[in-house]
Simulated assay, not measured.
Amino acid sequence: MTAQEMLPWLKFVHGDMFCDKHWMEMFALIGLPSKPVESLTFGDFLATKDNIIARANDLQELNGRAVSEIAIRQALRELDIWEVEAKFSLTEHKDSRGESVMLIKDFKDILNKVTISCT
């Protein structure tokens, strides 16, 4: 196989969205010995071009998973920030037994904010 045949698949090994777990999985998929990401060279990938081509679908799936996981982590981080900053307006309500219960005003608006930040 030629290096030219590998070119379309290089976009799945650049790892902009990869965390350490994804890098380790990619190294295992293409048979590249584990090493610091900062020291990777194009030559490292050329040496494994046959594996990159053979495992192209797996690399594509790994890349998609990494992108999805980043979106989830970001949504959770935003939810954590919202949790700290959120202030609730409460209103008193009498339940069916006549006991006083505090309810959050505008509950639907708050729930919508949480839902939007998680999508």
Rank of each mutant, 00 (worst) to 15 (best):
T2M: 06
A3V: 12
L10K: 07
L10F: 08
F12L: 06
V13G: 08
V13E: 07
D16W: 15
C19H: 14
D20I: 15
D20P: 09
H22V: 01
W23M: 05
E25V: 01
A28H: 09
G31R: 04
L32G: 04
L32Q: 07
S34G: 13
K35T: 03
P36S: 03
V37T: 14
L40I: 15
T41K: 15
T41C: 13
F42V: 08
F42C: 09
F42A: 04
G43Q: 05
G43H: 01
G43Y: 03
A47Q: 03
K49H: 03
D50Q: 06
D50C: 10
D50P: 03
I52Q: 10
I52M: 03
I52S: 10
I53D: 09
R55A: 02
A56I: 00
A56E: 07
L62I: 00
L62G: 05
N63G: 02
N63E: 15
R65P: 11
S68N: 11
S68K: 11
E69W: 04
I70A: 06
A75M: 05
D80Q: 13
E83D: 13
V84Q: 12
V84R: 12
E85W: 09
K87I: 00
F88C: 04
F88I: 01
S89V: 09
L90Y: 14
T91E: 13
T91K: 04
D95Y: 15
S96W: 15
E99Q: 11
V101I: 07
M102A: 14
M102F: 08
K105W: 00
D106G: 06
L111H: 08
L111Y: 08
L111W: 03
K113C: 07
C118A: 02
